[in-house]
Write a protein that binds this DNA or RNA. Sequence first.
DNA 1: ATGAAAGCGCTAACAA
DNA 2: TTGTTAGCGCTTTCAT
Lengths: 357, 357
Amino acid sequence: MARNLATGQVSIANVAALANVSTATVSRVLSGQRDKDDDISRRVKEAAAKLNYSVNFAASSLRSDVTRTIGLVIPEISEEQTPTLLLNSLSAAIREANRYLLLAIGADAERQKEDLHSLLTRGIDGLIIISSNDENLVESLDEEYKNLPIVQIGGKSLTPHINWVGTDQSEAMRMTVDHLAEQGSHAIAYLSREIESYTAADLFTTFYTQSKALDLTPDPDWVQFGPCTMERGYQAAISLFQDRRVVPDAVVCASDSIAMGVLIACKHLGLDVPEDVKIIGYGDAPACEIAQPALTSIRPMYEEIAEESVSIICDWDTNKPRMAAYQAFKPELIYRESTWSPRTGSSDMTLPGTADN
Amino acid sequence: MARNLATGQVSIANVAALANVSTATVSRVLSGQRDKDDDISRRVKEAAAKLNYSVNFAASSLRSDVTRTIGLVIPEISEEQTPTLLLNSLSAAIREANRYLLLAIGADAERQKEDLHSLLTRGIDGLIIISSNDENLVESLDEEYKNLPIVQIGGKSLTPHINWVGTDQSEAMRMTVDHLAEQGSHAIAYLSREIESYTAADLFTTFYTQSKALDLTPDPDWVQFGPCTMERGYQAAISLFQDRRVVPDAVVCASDSIAMGVLIACKHLGLDVPEDVKIIGYGDAPACEIAQPALTSIRPMYEEIAEESVSIICDWDTNKPRMAAYQAFKPELIYRESTWSPRTGSSDMTLPGTADN
DNA sequence: ATGAAAGCGCTAACAA
DNA sequence: TTGTTAGCGCTTTCAT
């Protein structure tokens, strides 16, 4: 018999029979555990190819407790584009590592907790968490999962035994403020994330420090905390600029969505961007290219962050307890028209279509 | 012993022992196969809860050949937002159905074919495909997978034994043209997808028929086929409007990205939208709210499409060979400023922030 | 280095 | 209805 009658699937026994070796040898050859390139090896590989054999995943997992599967918990894909962009890169990295991606999208912390539990009981080799709110999902984990490699991307690193990969936010802020200063800004406003988010505090500190270092005057009223939505950006800009004697000449935003809102508000108020106000976003969402003027934005190193996260999980060795990783990548600043004054850059509307396909 | 020493996991045997029943009974109670609510049932459930038991996925799959996992093959998330929006809805539907989502993102047809093979050999209960190009991925499937439920979302239904779920494109086009006619348009241009895409032909046919029915004059030069990018929309609009004596007063676009490009081009050319030209997109991407003016767009029934797709897979009965499903949902037309003339609608820029959070 | 055989944890067939 | 038991397909130990 060439195949199991029930499932219609070729099993390792069929390969073993055809290659005239034991099932153990087939397993060893195909898993790369036995890498000698002799006659046996060739026979096994030929037999496997001929029968179109592929290992039964469930059986393999059951026996070896390895699933070749990485769980990913992310918040709902919405205005905030960062998770989406990261998802692309993560998927590519996981494919490269020859692993599978088990995805759970949970809008709020409650559902994310459910997702987490669900993935863990199902069985995965590692877990990647992109948490939008800085809630500590991992706190709720049972003891039995403490030796599973877990990587948190972004947010605040809360527990020392969780690997953290993300963007060097201080560096991001430094680049932002430096760039604006270079472009001639003196009075910078800062629309941050929610104050509860731990990163917000860090960013604010850097913003404040850097502003002072450059002899800029950060007006306390100009630093505001709130949600990462376009509406919030719009409202904040209105309150910053309307009926005010002293107004900022640049607005730094914690997300591209906020920046879009500011952009729209400026147009309504008849303010020229970048002549009167410079605007800078965060995330380098595709919409930055679309905006008019195109939006300068901080671009996290999505690919590097994804690859590093996957590497941590794939190279994990349970026996060798190493310290939790902490990898902060310096982001890129993507210069566009919203911070380029006509004198410095091109005032002509460049065609934005040459973006990524 | 309360748990297996090797894996640290509680097994069904532990639960059986604590509840004083056989493992088979535990399995039956917990799987819902035995739904009587008597003492045995209670004892089993209590024991399972007490020991924090959850079934071993690999063992269950191996034995029953059920993975509770749905594979999803999608193209890379890029300018084209539709797959992203659909992903959100699909994830929600899959969670609702108490299944897992195994995601494979493949930029081109070649990689999607790899993904497909990879998912199938791994073992899934059903497969959902969102193919951007209308390539027939499923043709390449081995015979042994022919009884696996496969759902294709969107694109052209190519093989009769594949379930198809998507948008009623003819209806979409009808709504579009009707709306434009109502708004007073007489000369409509149509920027379609690539001509190779099968849907393009359908849409064009509807566009042509409907235009004629409404006594509009579809100029052959005004129907163009091409990629769904902003750049293409820009270039197309330039060629439509620049140095022409007769120009369209409305542009129907096969994607929001194209529409964005047209919008930008119109601004460059000094054309007022919607006064001089009305523009309508497809997909209702978040960017439609951002655009200035906000972009009218056709919105597919993302939630319904997702739920239907998942239902087909979950309700699949291999024994009962039924006909392949074909479910076309009528889309919504989201009216925004790009097709509302000041006389008809509001010329005042409404705040777009009230969108989905 | 290779083969024989145990057994991962569960479900389903069969027996009571 | 419940229990007993075989066995899903693989990996891995142990014996050769």
